[in-house]
Deep mutational scan, measured.
Amino acid sequence: RDEDEKEKIKEALKRGNEDKAKEIAKRANVSPEEYERLRKEAE
């Protein structure tokens, strides 16, 4: 379940949809550090 959320965040970031990614991260309680890591992976 947690991994699904992280995949959704990465997908949103790949599409350049940072607002959606942040919204998912907030809902999934993803830490800022984890969010940054996902953002780097998505580049």
Rank of each mutant, 00 (worst) to 15 (best):
K10C: 05
I24R: 02
L38M: 06
N17G: 03
E34Q: 05
A42I: 11
E43G: 08
D19F: 10
E36T: 04
N17Y: 10
K40F: 11
D2I: 13
K20I: 14
A28N: 13
K40N: 10
L38A: 02
N29H: 09
A25I: 02
E7Y: 12
L38W: 05
L38G: 00
E33H: 07
R15K: 12
E3R: 10
I9K: 00
E3Y: 11
I24K: 01
K6V: 10
A42Q: 05
K20L: 15
E3N: 11
K8L: 14
D19Q: 14
D2Q: 12
A21M: 01
Y35I: 04
R39L: 08
L38E: 01
R15W: 12
E3I: 08
L13Q: 01
K26N: 10
K20S: 09
A21Y: 00
K8I: 06
P32M: 11
E34Y: 03
R39G: 03
A21E: 01
R27E: 12
Y35S: 01
K26E: 13
E41V: 05
P32H: 10
D19I: 12
R27D: 09
R39M: 08
D4K: 11
E18Y: 15
E33Y: 06
L38T: 02
N29S: 07
E23P: 00
K10N: 02
E33V: 07
L38V: 03
E23L: 07
N29E: 09
A12R: 00
K22G: 04
K22V: 07
Y35D: 01
K8M: 14
E3C: 05
V30H: 01
V30N: 01
S31A: 08
E43S: 09
Y35P: 00
D4W: 13
K8D: 06
K6Y: 15
R39V: 12
R1P: 14
E36R: 04
I24T: 03
E43L: 15
K8W: 09
A25H: 00
L38R: 00
R1H: 14
K26S: 09
A12F: 12
N29W: 03
R27A: 14
R15H: 14
E34G: 02
A25Q: 05
K10A: 03
K10Y: 05
K6F: 14
V30C: 04
R39S: 08
K10V: 08
K20P: 01
Y35A: 01
E43W: 13
L13V: 04
K26G: 07
K10T: 04
K8V: 05
R1D: 14
A12S: 05
E41Y: 03
K14R: 15
E36D: 10
G16D: 03
R1E: 13
E18R: 07
P32I: 11
L13Y: 03
L13D: 00
R15L: 14
E43A: 13
K26W: 08
E3S: 10
P32Y: 11
E41N: 04
S31Q: 06
Y35G: 00
A42T: 07
A42P: 01
K26A: 11
A12V: 03
K10G: 02
R39H: 05
A25N: 01
K14Q: 07
I9E: 00
E11G: 06
D19L: 12
A12E: 13
A42S: 07
Y35K: 00
A25F: 02
D2V: 14
K8Q: 14
R39W: 07
N29C: 04
P32W: 13
K40E: 13
A42V: 15
E11A: 10
E7M: 14
E23T: 05
R27V: 09
R37E: 10
E41W: 05
A12I: 03
K6R: 15
A28H: 13
S31F: 03
D2G: 12
E36Q: 06
E23Y: 05
L38S: 00
I24C: 04
E34H: 03
N17Q: 15
E23M: 08
E36N: 07
E23N: 05
K14L: 10
R27L: 15
R39E: 06
K20V: 15
V30I: 15
E7N: 12
K10S: 03
E5N: 10
E23H: 05
E3G: 10
E5Q: 12
D2C: 07
K14T: 05
N29I: 01
E11N: 10
D2H: 13
A28P: 02
R27I: 11
D19H: 12
R15A: 15
D19G: 11
R37H: 08
L13H: 02
E7S: 12
E18C: 08
A12C: 04
K40W: 14
R1L: 13
D4R: 12
E36P: 00
A28R: 03
D4F: 09
E34K: 01
R27N: 14
R15D: 13
E36K: 04
N29T: 03
P32V: 11
K22S: 06
E11K: 07
S31H: 06
S31E: 06
K10W: 04
D4H: 11
A28T: 07
K40T: 11
E43C: 07
Y35M: 08
Y35R: 01
E11F: 05
E41P: 02
R39D: 02
S31W: 03
K8E: 10
V30K: 02
G16L: 03
I24G: 02
E36A: 07
E18G: 06
A25G: 03
L13F: 13
G16R: 04
E11S: 09
R37F: 08
L13I: 11
E34F: 02
A21T: 00
K22L: 13
K20Y: 14
K40L: 15
E3T: 11
L38Y: 05
D19E: 15
A28F: 14
K40A: 14
L13C: 02
K6Q: 08
K40S: 12
I9F: 02
E36F: 04
P32Q: 11
E23S: 06
K20W: 13
K14G: 04
E36S: 04
K40R: 14
E34A: 05
E3K: 10
K14D: 02
N29A: 06
R1I: 14
K6E: 06
G16M: 03
R15T: 12
E33F: 06
N17C: 07
E11V: 07
V30M: 12
K8A: 15
N29K: 08
E33M: 08
R39C: 05
K26P: 00
S31D: 08
E36W: 03
P32T: 10
K26R: 11
E18V: 14
Y35Q: 02
K20F: 12
I24A: 04
R39P: 01
L38H: 01
E5P: 15
A42M: 08
L13E: 00
E41C: 04
D2P: 13
G16Q: 04
E11Y: 05
E36G: 03
R37L: 10
R27C: 07
D19K: 14
K6S: 09
A28M: 10
L38I: 10
K14A: 08
A25E: 02
S31K: 07
A28K: 04
D2E: 14
Y35L: 08
K6N: 09
R15P: 01
D4Q: 12
R1C: 09
D4C: 11
D2W: 14
I9R: 00
E23I: 06
I9W: 01
K6M: 14
A12Y: 13
L13K: 00
K40P: 02
E34T: 05
E18K: 07
E36L: 06
K40G: 09
I24D: 03
K40H: 11
D4M: 11
P32C: 08
R37N: 10
S31V: 05
L13N: 00
K6T: 09
K22D: 04
N17K: 07
E34P: 00
D2T: 11
A42H: 04
I9V: 06
R27G: 09
D4P: 08
E3V: 08
E43T: 10
A21D: 01
V30L: 13
L13G: 00
K6D: 04
R37K: 11
K20H: 11
E36I: 05
E41T: 04
E5S: 13
R39K: 14
D4T: 12
R37D: 08
E5T: 15
D2Y: 15
N29D: 09
A28L: 15
L38N: 00
E18L: 10
A42N: 05
E18A: 09
I9D: 00
G16I: 01
E33W: 07
N17S: 06
D2S: 09
N17A: 09
P32G: 08
K20R: 12
A12W: 14
E33L: 08
E18T: 11
K14W: 07
E3Q: 13
E43P: 03
E33T: 08
G16E: 03
I24S: 02
D19M: 12
I9S: 01
P32N: 10
L38C: 02
A42L: 08
E5H: 15
R1S: 14
E5I: 15
E5V: 15
E11D: 12
N17W: 14
R27T: 10
E5D: 13
E41D: 07
R1V: 14
N17F: 12
K10L: 10
E18W: 11
E7V: 12
R15M: 15
L38K: 01
E34N: 03
Y35H: 01
A12H: 11
